[in-house]
Computed example of a mutant assay.
Amino acid sequence: MSIDWPDELGPARLETTVMNYCGWTTVAVVFGFVVYRFLTGDPFGALINAIIVVLLVSTILLGRIPRFKPQALIAFGSIITASCLMSALLVSPNGLLWTYLVLWINFLVLPRSVAIVLNLLVTVILAANVWLFDDLLQHISWITVAVLISGFSLVFTNELKAQRRMLSQLATLDPLTGAGNRRLLQRDLERAIAENRRARRDSTLMVLDLDHFKHINDNHGHEAGDQVLEQFVTMVRKTLRTEDGLYRLGGEEFVVLLRDMDPQTAQTNLRELHERLSGRVDSPEGPLRFSAGAATLVTGENWSQWLARADRALYQAKNEGRDRLVMS
């Protein structure tokens, strides 16, 4: 199962926010320079600034299209890097002041390797143009500060990404078993429904409940029960495809999302899957068996209706004697 990110913690969420905030702010400021340079008789400088404005606006608007966000972020970093160089080399040495901001932003919006390359390029090119600096001390000071900012930005963004990854796991994964939690289940079910509406892709849901699991906790303790749950999740996950999902609803109840599985395939394969998996994990009370209910998505259902239908099939399986699968 591929681990998804919550929308508010997604890998591109911070990057997109930085691009939008810094991008629009830069557009407003640079547009002011366009007007100023034009009015003060510097049409070449005004043209350079105008080109920067057009490129930034185009990139920010491209980033509003979800499938183009990664490309827009790369383009944004490249544009602000090129703009920094053009401002310093073609317009005014005052463009050096923009360098520090660009070095920082690149690490926030770009993949680490790309940011390192662009920042190194900016630093080397500008440092090589000694005429930009008033004296040797200013030259050395600028290089030192540029290197320090790049180093600090690299360390900071690495730590930030690690923290975001940890927060994502806390928000979407069950801490004991590593299976997805209910929040991730709801989002994946909603996406499966959207795929069904858009591309007629069928998906099947299977709800599992471990039979007589309470006896393990009562007779051998919760630690033994936790170990059994972890072993069960490991066993089920090895059986699933990478596009499938495994989630823990709570206690000893789990949900499996099987993408691209139509009703006919589900009827044939899920009973065989149940027979292969039930009893494969050993527990202090003997082979661990489970009851299951399955339901293929019906057009017009929402995620809770779909889950409820599979859940009703599960309870039918339990009422009929457990250790069996019922299709809804």
Rank of each mutant, 00 (worst) to 15 (best):
L96R: 05
M235I: 10
P93G: 06
W131L: 07
A82K: 07
S283R: 05
D244P: 02
T81Q: 09
N94F: 10
T242E: 08
L73E: 07
A72H: 06
L189A: 02
D311N: 03
I3P: 08
G178C: 12
I193A: 05
A162M: 13
P287W: 02
T234G: 10
A194Y: 04
D174M: 04
V27G: 08
V109Q: 04
L136M: 10
D218R: 13
Q71S: 14
E275F: 03
L118K: 07
E223F: 14
M19C: 09
A12C: 12
F68P: 07
E275Y: 05
V124Q: 08
A127E: 11
G77W: 01
L185F: 04
I125V: 14
P66G: 03
V326F: 00
M206S: 03
V57C: 11
A179F: 02
G300C: 02
T265N: 01
A194C: 03
R164P: 09
K161H: 14
S278C: 00
F68W: 13
I60A: 10
E285F: 12
L47S: 15
L277M: 02
R191S: 08
W303L: 07
L184V: 12
Y100S: 13
L189D: 02
Q267M: 04
G45M: 06
M19P: 06
V130C: 05
L108M: 15
D202N: 06
P70V: 09
L205A: 02
K161M: 13
L240Y: 00
L55M: 14
L9E: 11
T81K: 12
C22T: 15
S304K: 11
N219Q: 15
D188V: 07
F254N: 03
V35D: 09
F68I: 09
S58A: 15
P6F: 03
A266N: 01
R259T: 07
S278W: 01
Y21A: 15
A179L: 01
L56S: 11
W24S: 13
G63T: 07
N181K: 09
L314Q: 02
S92P: 01
L184T: 12
N106D: 05
V114S: 11
F133N: 04
V122I: 14
N302Y: 04
V53M: 06
A295S: 06
E253S: 03
L14N: 13
M166L: 15
